[in-house]
Each structure stands twice: as C-alpha cells, then as structure tokens.
Design a protein around this nucleic acid. Structure first.
Lengths: 237, 237
DNA sequence: GCAATAGTGTCTTTGAGACAGTATAGG
DNA sequence: CCTATACTGTCTCAAAGACACTATTGC
C-alpha cells in the first residue's frame, strides 16, 4: 500500500490515508417492532455476512458525504427522499481488517411500505434490539442509532417518519411508545400533540383495523422533521 | 497522487481516498466572554492564517480518532486531560483546496488558567461570536460547536468545565448565563443546582473579588461531565 | 344495547419563574 | 449602621400525569 516516496509526501502529509466509508442505519417499523435493514456483503472482507448498508465515498460523483448517503440508499435499497441525519464518525485502527478506517455513520428512517424494492435487492429486516452479530463495529453503530432515536424521539417528529404519510392518532401514539419503550397516557399524548400543532387532518375519514367500531380521524405531518423543547412524557406510575 | 494501479485497486476500492483530518474547537472563558483558541497555520494551504487546532490522523501512532485529538491537543497546545467530545464530520469535495477531504470535528472546553503554555506556542484567543474569517469551513465548524455548547449547555455540567476546579455559585451562574446568553434567576438557579446534587462544598471558605463583603462558599464538581433531563431555565420576563 | 375503540374533562402534582425577604461580612 | 453581595422563602403559573368520563360506530 505504498504510494509516492516518503520524501515526496513528507512536505504536506506524512501518513497513509485511512479508508473512508459511509454506513447507514436504516430503521423501520414492522409488527410493532423497530427493525434494521441489513444487506449481505458482496465483497471481502466479511463477504456474504449481513452488515449495515454502506459504501465508499466516490470522490468523483459525491460532492459531500450526504450525497454519498443518497447515492448509496438509492443504489442499494432503491430509496429516495428519506429523512436521514449524521450520527457520528467511527474511526479507529482495528475496526476494519483492511487497516485504519473511518466510517461516517448515518441514521435514517423509512415507513415499512416503501421497502418492496429494497427487499427485492436482498435487504433483510432484523429486530433492532436483537440484531445478529455484525462485522466491523456495526453493532456499536447500530446501538448508537437506537440511542439517538430513543433520545431524540421524545423531542421530535422523527418517530412519525416511521409511519406512512397518513396515520391515526393511536398509530402515532404506538410509534412513540415503541420508540421510547414506555407506555404513554392517551389524554396527555393528544394534548401534547395538539399543543405542538404538528398535524393536519386529512379530509376523508377511514375505518381502521376491523376491531375498531368508531371511525378514526386521519392525520398527516404538517412540516418536515421538527424538534421541540419539552419531552413527550411517559406514564410515571 | 496515484497509488497502486487502477486495475489492482478496482477489486475492492475504486476511488481515491479522501484526506482525513481532525479539527478541534477549543473554547474557554475570558472576561466573561466565550473565546476560541486559534493557531496560525505552519503549512500550506493557508499558511500563516489562523485556523482551528487540527491535524492529520497519524495511522501509526493513533489507535483511534480520540487518540489523535489527545495527541494534537498535547503537541500543539500543551494540554492534557481536557473534556472533549465529537461534534460531527465535515466531509465534502470543496472544503479543502487539496481535494476531497473529511474533518472529524471535536469540541473541547478548558479553564482559561490552563492556557499559559498554549499561549507560548502561539495559540491566540478570539471572541467566539466574532471570530475572524477562517480557512476551509472552519467558521461552520465553530458555529456548530457554539450551537452544541448552547444547546447541551443548559442540560449538562459542560459549562462548569470552563471554570477552574473550585468556584463560587455566582461564578457558576455567570458561566451558564454566558453560555446560554440569558439571565437566570438566582433563587431558581441555586434550587436547580442543589436538586441535581452536582457539587460538593470545599472546606476552606474564601473571600471573592474585593466588591463582595460577605464571604462565599466554594464548590467543586462531584463527577465528570453529567447530562440532566430538564433544562436550567431562563428568566422569562 | 353491547363491545370496542375514539376522544374529552378535570384534578392533582411538580418544576420553576418572580420577587421580596433575611444574612453576613468590611468599611 | 450602611452597603454590597450571599443566600432563602414563598407565591404563582404552567406542563403534564392520572383517571374517569362521554361519543360513535358495527354487530
């Protein structure tokens, strides 16, 4: 892995450049459970084992890291326009057998309904809390994404991005409960959501899962992801 | 900048490796104002201009990015044992004239009293809110550090790390006021700090700035940086 | 009218902002 | 005893937890 002579490089850059990749923790909700999207690796190292969706930065195509994330999500999962944000960078000598490497980790959420094409491309969903052992430090990256979702979940509309465009208030409450891992009081939840003025009603009402007799109002998020000051609280007793 | 032949690399890695550096936003408090530590650059590009403290990852010495931060803080500012945490990574094609590059940005705080040696090494302090124009995207990195400090400041003991080991309650309140840019009510502040149980009294009392008649209790932080649930609140009217 | 979920009203607790009060020193 | 800062007490308001209540449909 030697490049130009050490003498030439010494002027500006004394050290081998580490490998730089992007890894994406793509989360969705299925059967009331958070799931991670994993993809069997096509190349060495760890060829054949499932891992986070990721790839090299393409210095010719990608003008920045976000662009690389968009390109990779599109190419490997057929997805476009998702909400995603940078988690943090995992950079160390021994996280990759190929040598010193850095992975800029991203966290993304997607409604389960958009994953048809992803499934066709070999993407598998695994329960986020009991994912298999992953190569590199991907289990740590996943843990970090879950921590972020649980932390920021209570203070933002990110959990709502796990639902389809249109949803009921009960569904919304269930997502928050799943994400936060706590039961929420129905009355307090609705009050809070109303106060925050995040939703708009969808005109045509609809009947939900056969068990419901009374029809339910449907809602849609007003704006892209928002963050609020005070927590959506849990039931304390 | 060619390395092994394109054919050799094509198997695993089709693209040139970006430059990878670490940059540190080192903040301190001087004359009741937040200040950033900046250092004139010794090498091109932007040789001679002040910039954030940073450097390449040394793949032989640094086992991970945090180690690089510690090494750089020690080598360039003579500092050890500071609180620091990762901000986020700035990665784009045009942020560095040398080509596609990524900087893992860190944010650190230091009591002003520890900066004697740093000053001797050419480090300058500039008001954080009116720093000069910096090379690369360092102004954006600085802005991101300030945002983090102001955001997390109200929920953590990080602001206290801007003070010397031992401090008075008024000093502590002033740091929080400076960081948050808001006046705080004295009674509410003390109640909050007491409830959080963050401090321990220092036995020998001491008289503060000549203006104070009554002697003041001195405190010390009990534990390393802590984060709390509820904000240290501002005066609303 | 019964089952089942949708949705509302209201009591209570708690955190914290406002603000005035008391305490303790030097001069 | 005056001044300047240290420190405390308490009223009030607002957010939100608890919980019981009403509403609307299919069967």
């Amino acid at each position: 892995m030697k490049r130009t002579s050490a003498v030439d490089r010494r002027k500006t850059e004394d050290f081998e450049r580490p490998i730089l990749t992007v890894d994406i923790v793509l989360l969705t909700l299925l059967e009331g459970q958070l799931q991670v999207a994993l993809l069997p690796r096509l190349a060495e190292p760890f060829k054949g084992r499932v891992a986070l969706i990721g790839g090299y930065i393409h210095t010719d195509e990608d003008k920045d890291a976000e662009q690389a994330v968009r390109r990779i999500l599109h190419a490997k999962a057929g997805l476009k326009g998702l909400f995603f944000e940078q988690l943090r960078t995992f950079a160390a000598r021994d996280r990759d057998p190929r040598g010193w490497s850095a992975s800029i980790a991203y966290f993304a959420v997607v409604p389960h309904g958009l994953l048809r094409e992803a499934a066709a491309r070999g993407i598998e969903l695994h329960p986020a809390d009991s994912a298999p052992r992953l190569p590199f430090d991907h289990n740590a990256i996943l843990a970090s994404a879950l921590e972020r979702l649980r932390g920021k979940g209570a203070y933002s509309t990110i959990p709502a991005r796990l639902l389809p465009d249109v949803f009921t208030m009960s569904e919304l409450q269930q997502v928050y409960e799943t994400v936060m891992g706590e039961r929420l009081d129905q009355s307090a939840f609705r009050r809070k959501i109303a106060d925050l003025d995040l939703l708009e009603e969808v005109v045509g009402e609809k009947r939900q899962t056969a068990t419901a007799r009374r029809p339910t109002t449907l809602y849609r998020l007003k704006s892209p992801v928002e963050v609020f000051e005070r927590k959506i609280g849990a039931v304390t007793r």
